[in-house]
Write a protein that binds this DNA or RNA. Structure first.
Length: 493
RNA sequence: GGCAUUGUGGCCGAGUGGCUAGGCAGAGCUCUGCAAAAGCUUGUACAGCGGUUCGAAUCCGCUCGAUGCCUCCA
């Protein structure tokens, strides 16, 4: 059955600035494009947050029964470092610094990107196209824009004519900018520039002799402009108008604004119905960015090898931390926040594992069907994962009460509870119940189990000196024993 | 300077014109040989100053602060 027929989803559309009822162009099917990474260095945690937000969105669409074509590109053609003529593309620069082929840089960091996302339990997109694999498509779009008169060629480069475009279209409608204001606020620089207007942007740049990444084109050897690849690839795989375009908030202007302009100039149609923007992850209150050095790598968190965190955190805890904030809000990373998330996540997992053991009765004291709908309502309200998680914790309270026989649950509700928990926690939020430490080594588990047994015997004999030695020595090794009604379990920190 | 977003209890972080967010920490309790773990209970916060309203943390204005974009950036 298709849930989307009964669950009505609202999304915040950056284009309108409002939450809108989501209706795909083709019933039951969704086309979604998300701007992927530029693979010139290791993906940092801030990058991951954006992709994780859209991974969650992708997962929810699938859960609702939509057929989704999710396209997330790899930018491997490099972007210009700056707008001046001597701009150098990032990948070429990195290649020169490291004395390797540009495609070697691309390969290295593409692999890193995929490895990290896998650790975070990402679902792979339907298509992951690369910019260099779509040079021909990009050239075709440039030709079309030139034909329509919205671009001009200068010295082997082609620029998009923003003022001309703005005469008949609305440049700035996504970011809420007005061309007049932009012109009025233009900084005075770029003395020797081929561009007619500072607002114009490159569709094709002439490659200087020393430039490594280059392709032949009708305008000579060069490379595509910064915004073109997304237009080319989204159009190719999703059509001239598609449902959702996502990306980080920092891409809204100029990148996405230019995408709209390119698409409208080349084929006349507005390319995207719903623009979704994920907000930034900050650290110490500042945006994470490769360029400023204010960032942390995922592996530095997983290993605990960094200066801001007191310990290591697993990928799923980091994911839970991020899901506790709404994707459109700025989220600040800190040790305390991560610690809080870790404890909360453990609590959730313990409740989940307790469900199976719950004894059922004739009826339930809690309306689990209504509760389940509240979970959906949260997600239907622009993917409100923090509210969803609050509802999950509400259920945790009832699970514990049932466990202690203070409340009752019916067999049917127990099944519903289990299915709902699994669906939201694993399928939608993408979390994993990995007790890394415990599953680490069967031998270790066996040894600890043996020690637990010896300690139990000592305690039964009231030999507390021995039992406390076992407990304290294990604790010193980072193995904590947890005495419960059903016996003793342990966790490794 | 321009555009945009934002300011919630010790920390993180939702939300809404009047009805408990949630997590963590803290406090109390239960359990325990003692602890730990676990569970239960507990907090009336919404930058400041005005205004609209029967009623605003939620709407409007101003002040102050923060962040993002305006050059590549998730």
């Amino acid at each position: 059955m298709q849930l989307y027929k009964t669950q009505h989803l609202k999304v915040y559309n950056s284009l309108s600035g409002q939450k809108e009822l989501f209706t795909p162009i083709h019933e039951g099917a969704i086309g979604m494009y998300v701007c992927g990474p530029t693979v010139y260095s290791n993906v940092h945690l801030g990058n991951c947050r954006t992709f994780m937000s859209f991974d969650m969105i992708f997962r929810y669409f699938k859960h609702l029964g939509y057929k989704v074509r999710y396209v997330r590109n790899i930018t491997d053609a490099g972007h210009l470092e700056n707008d001046a003529d001597d701009g150098e593309d990032k990948i070429a620069k990195k290649a020169r610094l490291e004395r390797i082929e540009p495609m070697e840089v691309v390969q290295r960091y593409t692999v890193d990107f995929h490895t990290i996302l896998q650790k975070f339990n990402f679902l792979p997109p339907s298509i992951e196209p690369t910019a260099t694999g779509h040079i021909i498509e990009q050239i075709e779009i440039i030709k079309e824009i030139l034909n329509k008169g919205f671009a001009y060629e200068v010295n082997g480069s082609v620029y998009f004519d923003v003022p001309k475009f703005n005469e008949t279209h609305n440049y700035g409608k996504l970011s809420g900018r007005k061309l007049e204001d932009m012109i009025a606020n233009t900084r005075e620089l770029a003395a020797q520039d081929d561009k007619h207007s500072p607002q114009d942007f490159a569709l094709w740049k002439k490659a200087e002799p020393q430039h490594i990444m280059r392709w032949p084109s009708p305008w000579g050897d060069g490379f595509p402009g910064w915004h073109l690849e997304c237009t080319a690839m989204s159009t190719k795989y999703l059509g001239e108008t598609f449902d959702i375009h996502g990306g980080g908030m920092d891409l809204k202007f100029p990148h996405h604004e230019c995408e709209i302009a390119q698409a409208e100039a080349s084929n006349g149609a507005s390319p995207v119905n719903y623009w979704l923007h994920a907000n930034m992850l900050t650290m110490n209150g500042k945006k994470m960015a490769k360029s400023t050095g204010n960032n942390i790598l995922p592996d530095e968190i997983f290993s605990g090898n960094n200066s801001i965190l007191s310990k290591a955190f697993t990928p799923t805890v980091v994911r839970f931390f991020m899901m506790q904030a709404h994707y459109t809000s700025i989220l600040d990373l800190s040790n305390d926040a991560l610690l809080a998330s870790e404890k909360g996540f453990q609590k959730l997992m313990e409740a989940l594992s307790a469900i199976d053991k719950l004894e059922t009765g004739a009826s339930s004291d809690f309306d689990f069907t209504a509760w389940q709908q509240k979970c959906y309502d949260a997600m239907n309200d622009d993917f409100n994962t923090p509210t969803l998680i609050a509802h999950l914790f509400e259920a945790v309270k009832h699970i514990n009460a049932i466990k202690e026989k203070k409340e009752a649950i019916s067999e049917a509700d127990k099944t519903l509870l289990k299915e709902t928990f699994n669906a939201f926690i694993f399928d939608i939020l993408g979390l994993e119940d990995k007790n890394d430490a415990n599953s680490d080594s069967d031998k270790l588990s066996g040894v600890v189990a043996l020690l637990i047994q010896l300690r139990k015997e000592a305690r039964d004999n009231k030999d507390f000196a021995t039992s406390d030695i076992i407990r304290d020595q294990l604790a010193a090794l980072g193995i904590q024993l947890k005495d419960g009604k059903e016996g003793t379990t342990f966790s490794i920190s």
